[in-house]
Design a protein around this nucleic acid. Structure first.
Lengths: 261, 261
DNA sequence: CGGTAATGCCGCGGAACTGCCGCAACCCCG
DNA sequence: CGGGGTTGCGGCAGTTCCGCGGCATTACCG
């Protein structure tokens, strides 16, 4: 990556050393973050830092604008200054909490402003006292997203821990698959595909559905990508009684191979 | 606008009309929760939040009172501060574990990061570092109850004081590890990691889970940090029958090396 | 206040994975 | 039976992921 100049701070190199706080490049995750602060400095430096980590950031001059934008289109995380013209950060926080459980980070000028919240934050997930380190803030943001992802992942763990179909057994706990007793080496995509197919066995599933459920709704892959994974999965399942049929012009369907092949 | 004061707790600001988290409706379950914390703020805020979610909450100023109440009438979940007058949260946790398998959530200040996973090893189910989000805590509580409901039938074995796996023995009392009779020199992180892996042997564990459970929910380390500790632990375990597999694109899994070689 | 251990981060190189391309085979339908 | 769209296949290249050595910082300790 070529060192890029911050538009807000000419002469300040973003990529020199700290732009890549994590070796990760933009993965296209693009969680959206709203930030409200009346100080232009703070807005822009925080925005720059977060954007360099791949987040989609919108900055607002006061909390009311942020609130309006949030009602229009919610974000995945909110950063609020406490001291702002118009509604205070606390008020905005409360308003947000009426309509959402979005994670909120509060920024405050003095330690005392949050004294009542020592140890706990009522509505916000965390708070920072100015002056704060932009890197720390970025880390905290990432930690919050990490925790959220873990929570949601744990939450949607379905009831059956073991899927089985025609000699193929998939253990959701181990993330392992077994074919007639022999372990089956599957890549992540193949594994997810197999799970989804078994959970919807005997049902015709469109390519569109597969792409949405396995590759994600905002995936940019082409339709044929599903074909490839199906093909590779078929190869590894060859010889078993599990069969992935093609539904011509539509998608696929998992069936059990009839006895006399 | 100023956030309303909680009628029950003057000085503690609560937003009017908190949206029920996840919009779930009160099912009238009324699970009972005990919480012990010497800070009144925390007690009352947590109590309010949990009660607004339909739980029956009792708060105690220290762990001994909680313990006494628990012996009198057990609760369905316990929240323990680590730093308290009288018995520490860890001590209370151990005592509780002698008589019950009740889920326990530990709270601690951000300092003392080395003992992050101590609570986990003592049998607590989760670990929060202050400051934490009350909403996150509530979500965690709900997740625990959700999981409990799922494996009600599954009988939890009382937490063993010595973990063993494929020639590796870990003594939770001494915080020592032995490999085939020879003492194993482990750093704190390595020790905690090994404990967690053995306690969840054969299960695929994501990096997020490792970071959350061992480094703490508010930790700011990068995900690759887990890789490093795994690597160093692998090195010390090389030559044993204990194997830490990598689950590509996900995390790790502890297994026993097959007989061959 | 130096020395040692522990820990996390960086960058690299290899390996695994994955989407895409072109082509041939296939299917449906008139 | 022929044509147009669809699907399967081998190969390929770009991307992502992971383990490793090395290094800087921090914590611990005498």
């Amino acid at each position: 990556m070529v060192p890029e100049e911050s538009p807000a701070f000419p002469g300040v190199k973003l990529a020199a050393g700290w732009a890549t706080i994590e070796g990760e490049v933009d993965k296209g995750m693009n969680e959206r973050i709203y930030i409200a602060d009346d100080e232009q400095n703070i807005r822009e430096v925080v925005k720059s830092f977060l954007e360099s980590e791949g987040y989609c950031v919108s900055a607002f001059e006061d909390g009311d604008q942020l609130l309006a934008a949030f009602r229009e289109r919610p974000s995945d995380l909110v950063i609020l200054d406490v001291m702002m013209p118009g509604s205070s950060g606390f008020a905005v926080c409360s308003e947000l909490r009426k309509i959402s459980t979005v994670p909120i980070i509060m920024l405050t000028a003095r330690e005392g402003e949050l004294e009542y919240a020592t140890g706990i934050n009522l509505g916000s997930d965390d708070y920072f006292t100015k002056p704060f380190s932009a890197i720390s803030l970025v880390m905290r943001v990432k930690a919050i997203f990490r925790r959220m992802e873990f929570d949601t992942k744990e939450k949607k763990t379905p009831l059956p821990l073991v899927l089985e179909h025609a000699g193929v057994r998939v253990d959701l706990n181990n993330k392992t698959a077994v074919l007639e007793g022999a372990p089956l080496e599957l890549t992540p995509n193949e594994y997810n595909l197999l799970c989804y197919l078994i959970q919807h066995k005997d049902r015709a599933i469109s390519r569109e559905e597969l792409l949405n459920k396995i590759w994600g709704y905002n995936s940019e892959v082409e339709t044929r990508a599903a074909d490839d994974t199906v093909r590779r999965l078929r190869k590894k399942l060859s010889g078993s009684r599990t069969l992935i049929e093609t539904v011509w012009g539509f998608g696929f369907r998992l069936k059990e191979r009839p006895a006399g092949e």
